[in-house]
């Protein structure tokens, strides 16, 4: 008798174990599904239509994508995104260097750390404005310095060859701070015994950094890489604030071009905008899959 009653009691318990996680996940899954997953498929769908946002969408198959290939503005945006992707990664070594420099105990080190972290706390809009004024061709600090040193003034944000680099530099300011803070927390967990042992074996300087410290910082590097790549691909606010995509569209990136085509004052081309979004999504997907695979591998590895 006792056996059966135990058996009966055990079953709901087992059910509970299986059910509860899903119940707790439900709100998250629901909102993620409605606000993230569903719109992704909706975008895929819209990209096959010609639609002004008003009236009936007209199915045109792959025409939006075919047009992208001959669209000069799209090509410029794609190249600029690539520049962003590559140069933005500079935030990682710079962030590491600053973190190593700040990882010491002197009076007031907290203040210095806060000062370095400051650009990450302020809004991207403010960062954009500060750099716009810095670059201002008439009264900006940059040209004041350049001319006082005897160089010719430059109009960074008005020069099609310089403008994207100028904006990326502005973006690197907060991004470096972000990477720095990731490394600072990482450095806290570096095993002092290992450092000690390495020192006894005569390692120091760069060899110490490369063989002892960096391997232990791998989780921090991974996260820094993830946030930097994602940050580079979704760069939008700085472009919008500093140049509005100009001069003559030379500083556009994909996310900005998508916004312009679909939602801005001169847009009203939802299908075309959606096609750009799909391309951006495909590029991001490459990285996302890599990130997820790496994370999955790390988590299933025994530690």
């Amino acid at each position: 008798m006792s056996v059966t009653s135990q058996h009966i009691r055990a079953k709901p318990l087992w059910n509970q174990k299986k059910l509860m996680p899903w119940l707790f996940l439900m709100p998250g899954i629901l909102f993620f599904g409605i606000y993230v997953v569903f719109p992704i498929f909706q975008s895929f769908n819209i990209s096959f239509y010609k639609w002004s946002g008003l009236g009936e969408p007209k199915y045109i198959g792959l025409k939006n994508y075919v047009k992208l290939f001959s669209d000069r503005a799209f090509e410029i945006s794609l190249w600029n995104n690539l520049k962003w992707l590559v140069l933005y990664l500079l935030a990682i070594p710079t962030g590491l260097a600053i973190a190593l420099f700040l990882n010491q105990t002197v009076t007031g080190i907290r203040l210095y750390k806060s000062l370095f972290f400051f650009p990450f706390v302020i809004s991207q809009v403010v960062v954009g404005l500060v750099f716009t004024w810095f670059y201002d061709p008439t009264f900006g600090l940059l040209n004041t310095i350049l001319t006082s040193l005897g160089f010719a003034p430059v109009n960074v944000l008005g020069d099609p060859t310089l403008v994207t680099y100028g904006i990326i530099l502005a973006g690197l300011w907060p991004q470096t701070a972000y990477c720095m803070i990731l490394y600072l927390t990482g450095l806290n967990t570096v095993d002092a015994d290992q450092v000690e042992a390495a020192r006894l074996d005569g390692a120091k300087g760069l060899r110490m950094l490369w063989y002892i410290i960096l391997p232990q910082l791998r989780p921090a590097t991974f996260i820094a890489f993830v946030v930097t790549v994602i940050g580079a691909l979704r760069s939008f606010d700085l472009v919008s604030i500093m140049t509005n995509g100009g001069p003559f569209g030379t500083s556009r990136v994909l996310s900005f071009y998508m916004f312009e085509k679909a939602l801005s004052e001169y847009g009203f081309r939802m299908g075309y905008g959606a096609a750009i979004a799909v391309v951006l999504f495909a590029i991001m997907m490459v990285f996302i899959v890599y990130f997820l695979r790496t994370m999955y591998k790390q988590e299933s590895e025994p530690r």
Binding site: G158, G246, P247, F248, G249, E260, S264, E265, Y266, G267, F268, R269
Partner: peptide, 22 residues
Amino acid sequence: FDRDFPAEMAGMGMEGLQEFMV
């Protein structure tokens, strides 16, 4: 310009005008 020309033409057109001025 941006009210007489259709929105998309106006957007591209004005970009061209700016480039021409530079």
